[in-house]
Computed example of a mutant assay.
Amino acid sequence: MAEQVLLTGASGFIAKHVALRLLNAGYDVRGTLRRLDRADEVRAALAPHLGDRAGTLSFVQADLEADAGWTEAMAGVAALVHTASPFPVAQPRDANLLIRPAVEGTRRVLKAAQAAGLKRVVLTSSTAAVINDGKPNTLQDEADWCDVTLPETTAYAKSKTLAERSAWEYARASGLALTTINPGLVLGPPLDEHYGTSLYLVERILKGRDPMLPAIGFPIVDVRDVAEMHLRALQRPATEGRRYIAAAGTLAMVDIGLVLKAAYPVRRIPTRVAPNLLLRALALVDPGVRAILPKLGHLDRVSNARAVQEMGMEFVAPKAALLASADWLVKHGRIWA
């Protein structure tokens, strides 16, 4: 009988790819959804990619902000993959709108896992929980943590950092065997048109919404590599108690523009760096611009050495992940060719 894995937030961009990897590896997957009417959406996204020997897929209703459903969700599962977490398009004025559900939701899920006698947990965190803005433009790794006390730390970074720290504290106290996967900016092809906010950056640049690009850069990873790391974490007991950065390298925004302009030369894609003063003015009316102000002048860089050495990962290059995103958006009519 196949082992069953509980996958939280199963309708998410990353989670659908994780579900696909798990199913094709022979695991049975039980996905949590806030609304069960999204179950058919997830099934339809996965169905074209499932092999003949895939495991079975089922769903249960459960919400990070409520206790109901989690006891039933955990019944009979061998492992938990916790991907569910809020991801905003723009930073909220009240940071607690992100922090509270992320931290309390993580605690709620881990508590239910412990109560069910479950031991193995893989949690999706973020490089936002790794990158310390007090050390800009330096190569950072799993030993680093975001400093939530810095005034420039965003609400999203605080939410991911505090949620992950809470998970490690709970795991140490309860004996849960925890592994965290910390992805950078997740690009690559979605499995359907419900991909949340992860590809909005690429969509925005392809649409030429901005005449210039901010002087910032992100660690980038392909969603298929993120999913593979979740699978390898489950399959390798040696990963227990470890953090793993999921990133193939860093691209500056202007380099993202140049790559996309080369691929789509007729599109009005920006390729110049915007003056910081202009961005600060735009931030007064555009929440999306306001969200990146603390990162101006930063080229965030992280090391993937641990994932390469301990998991055997061979990452899709950042440029290839970016172009896979853009090609999907154009092919599926999200961007007119």
Rank of each mutant, 00 (worst) to 15 (best):
D141S: 04
G105R: 07
A113S: 13
A157Y: 06
N132I: 02
A112N: 05
A112C: 12
V130Y: 06
A163N: 09
V121R: 09
P136L: 00
N137V: 10
E104F: 11
E164S: 07
Q114Y: 10
G117A: 12
A116H: 05
P151Y: 07
A95E: 10
A116G: 10
G117V: 11
L150V: 03
V130C: 07
V148A: 12
A129I: 07
D94E: 11
A115I: 13
V103C: 04
A116R: 05
K160H: 09
A90R: 02
K111D: 09
W145L: 13
R165V: 04
N137D: 12
K160M: 08
G134L: 04
G105Q: 01
A90W: 05
L123F: 15
Q114H: 11
C146E: 05
Q114R: 10
D141P: 01
R165S: 10
G134V: 09
A129V: 14
T106M: 14
R93K: 14
I131F: 10
C146K: 02
A143F: 00
K158T: 13
K160D: 02
N132F: 13
Q114G: 15
S126E: 12
T127H: 02
L118I: 11
A90C: 12
S125C: 05
A157W: 09
A129K: 07
V148Y: 02
R165C: 05
D147E: 01
P86F: 07
S166A: 15
T127M: 10
L98N: 09
V121A: 11
